[in-house]
Design a protein around this nucleic acid. Structure first.
Lengths: 223, 223
DNA sequence: CTTTTATGTGAAGTATTTGTGAAAGAAAAA
DNA sequence: TTTTTCTTTCACAAATACTTCACATAAAAG
């Protein structure tokens, strides 16, 4: 069980690290979002403790970034009175939120709760028949052969896969993958879905159109 | 499922609103107790999120006021260290409280728990015999086989199902499903009901005609 | 029983939504 | 810079959905 602690203050990191280690969690540290992204790319992380206020790449940006493709639970640390509305991309199902100053005991309790709740940890790959996604490697395979997806196509696919059997509106997709500050055309999604379908070849029909709503990924074998 | 959010800080209301909407709750806002009372009078509210400290009419007064006549569950928000024993009218069976600052996740979890407890929770699917609606998937199944409904047919069915045994006028249906800005013909509903009935096959008679009024969905086995 | 009123329904016409190729615009790589 | 790759927009075709209409049918009223 490995935690990533992202905070620019070494003192805070040390405190968390100390307490976490008494509970036998491994810890990895990062000073800012950029560093954290690097680590996420290369290591399997089970939970992230994330400070919102940081230089270089702040917590929110980092959060939106990783939520595009990964589903690692996150505990957010923020100063009291910070603006709540910045907390976009925050996934109510898997994440939690604590205000500074916090009691280490409470943090540990929440860590425990989240890890328990999410039971089986974030898998590092997805597989359905000959379709395979290797999350750490950012790669997708069809029948053993790697297919080359652009970033948006990959993000789309990941989001679809983690929301199997759920109809996703264009807005939802835009917000989650493009970010809340994208003000372009809805239909750009259609184009990306088209490309993704083409690239999925024999698996193209796993993405179905939900007319009037958006798209849905499902492996159900209906006619 | 409609929540009333009562808080004098717009920021807090916005945060709650944002998160509540991701869970598909409708939200109504009020700045103070007086406003909230007005709303309660005129709308059906399933749960109230209530800040205790407010100008004009504070949360406590409001709480006592509505508890006299209604039994809507309430989640109370209060600053840490406020005296809880002042919480008159607080019903331990149906209500809950949270201290600020709170985690949105926790609030939503409590909302869900309370709604579930009070039997009001919208489940994410509906089932009656071989008729099944999968809300997240926007899909309807009859005896295990998916039937393809158009958006309007699907919306109609959902609205019927959530208003079982209630006669719905054409106007009501138009307003809810078509929106208040639709100025077309009433009878278009008849056509959609016709199509929906056809698609429901063996379950077509769950939608009965209420002559002079509109339609009604009911599972009662009459005549 | 006849008339009136309301609903059921098939079919035609209208409107909307989606698929798609291509071009323009951005970003990254060379 | 130039070249390449990726992203976004656009335009039009195709598919699908929605609305209206006219007449058939059924229920209620006279």
């Amino acid at each position: 069980m490995r935690l990533l602690i992202v905070d620019d203050e070494k003192l805070i990191r040390d405190v968390i690290k100390t307490y976490a280690e008494t509970e036998n969690y491994e810890t990895v540290e990062a000073e800012n979002g950029l560093e954290a992204l690097e680590i996420i790319k290369n290591q399997k992380i089970d939970l992230i403790v994330l400070d919102i206020m940081m230089p270089k790449m702040d917590g929110m940006t980092f959060l939106e970034e990783i939520k595009k493709t990964q589903n690692i639970p996150v505990i957010i640390l923020s100063a009291r009175n910070e603006e709540y509305d910045k907390l976009k991309g925050f996934d109510l199902g898997t994440d939690d939120y604590l205000t500074k100053p916090f009691s280490p005991k409470e943090l540990l309790a929440r860590i425990k709760a989240i890890l328990k709740r999410s039971g089986k940890m974030t898998p590092d790959n997805y597989e359905y028949k000959g379709l395979k996604i290797d999350y750490p490697g950012h790669a997708v395979y069809i029948d053993g052969k790697e297919i080359k997806l652009t970033l948006k196509e990959y993000e789309l696919l990941c989001y679809f896969v983690t929301n199997e059997n759920i109809a996703l509106s264009r807005n939802q997709l835009l917000n989650k993958i493009w970010g809340y500050d994208f003000f372009g055309d809805d239909r750009t999604i259609d184009t990306h879905v088209k490309m993704l379908r083409n690239n999925l070849g024999p698996y193209r029909n796993l993405i179905t159109t939900v007319r009037g709503v958006g798209y849905k990924f499902s492996v159900k074998e209906n006619e």
